[in-house]
Design a binder for these strands. Structure first.
Length: 266
DNA sequence: ATGGTTGCTCCGCAA
């Protein structure tokens, strides 16, 4: 079974490219982030025609997450906890998570808040959101240590110095701050491992390149998209790739798809 | 040449 995550940065602007990528990547489950549309605007039929069941959660032109699966899509939820932090006035739980049982794996497509700046209210919100995710993730494994759970998506955190092209450039910025990295470590300590890094080690291995400043051709990126797996899921991982090719050319998302191969017999 | 983006929606904001 092939499981992938991809921040597509608008599913409508990139539909042809997403369909083409699905076709050649042969994924069974694809988690999308930043679909940038409401449910009624999501091109559900195009993915159904490609053979996938669809769960989308979008409330506005911002955020938006989806799961596509051709190995079953059951028990869909848009809240990983009853206490997912809300943001704004009025406070709203944003469209940043959708989970479902796909082929025996509980998959969560996650779009972690950006944070914007260390003194921005979005930064505190980001840390709260991550802490609630950690709490929820830990509780699932406390209930069932053998659960196959995948927390996948755009975490908007570069956990290690080598996950950015020049750590000095990010001094005082989000994505690399110690509280964010501690929040990410909290997920690891709860039992979820980075299933991709062993197969795609750094330095210089990234999943995102800013559109500006010619970051992609200069190979100046960030590793901020992850497939975190529970122990039972980790045991099934036989390989992983970051599809850097997909970042090339006209009309590319600023993020590359991240793919994990799972042993079907485990 | 010292810059060089994209998507949404409406001309600013978010990333």
């Amino acid at each position: 079974m092939r499981l992938a995550t991809w921040n597509v940065n608008s599913v409508r602007a990139r539909l042809d490219r997403v369909l083409a990528w699905i076709d050649r990547s042969d994924v069974d489950v694809l988690a999308l982030q930043e679909t940038k549309c409401k449910d009624e605007q999501f091109p559900e039929q195009a993915f159904r025609d490609a053979g996938y069941e669809v769960a989308h959660h979008g409330l506005s032109q911002w955020n938006g997450v989806a799961l596509l699966s051709r190995v079953g899509l059951e028990d869909v939820s848009t809240r990983f906890s009853p206490d997912v932090p809300a943001f704004g006035d009025p406070a709203v739980v944003e469209a940043r998570a959708v989970g479902a049982l796909c082929g025996g794996v509980r998959v969560w497509s996650l779009y972690v808040p950006n944070g914007r700046g260390l003194d921005d209210p979005h930064y505190a919100y980001k840390l709260l959101w991550l802490e609630e995710l950690r709490r929820a993730g830990a509780s699932w494994l406390a209930q069932d240590p053998g659960a196959q759970v995948a927390l996948v998506g755009d975490f908007n955190i570069a956990p290690q110095d080598e996950d950015v092209w020049d750590v000095d450039v990010f001094a005082g910025a989000t994505h690399v701050s110690e509280p964010e990295r501690a929040a990410f470590r909290g997920l690891l300590e709860a039992g979820y491992a980075d299933t991709v890094r062993p197969f795609a080690p750094g330095p210089g291995t990234y999943t995102y390149w800013d559109y500006t400043q010619l970051r992609f051709p200069k190979r100046q990126g960030m590793r901020i998209d992850f497939v975190l797996g529970s122990p039972a899921l980790q045991a099934r991982v036989t390989g992983a790739t970051i599809d850097r090719e997909e970042r090339k050319g006209k009309g590319a998302s600023d993020h590359a798809p991240v793919v994990v191969e799972l042993d079907p017999n485990a």
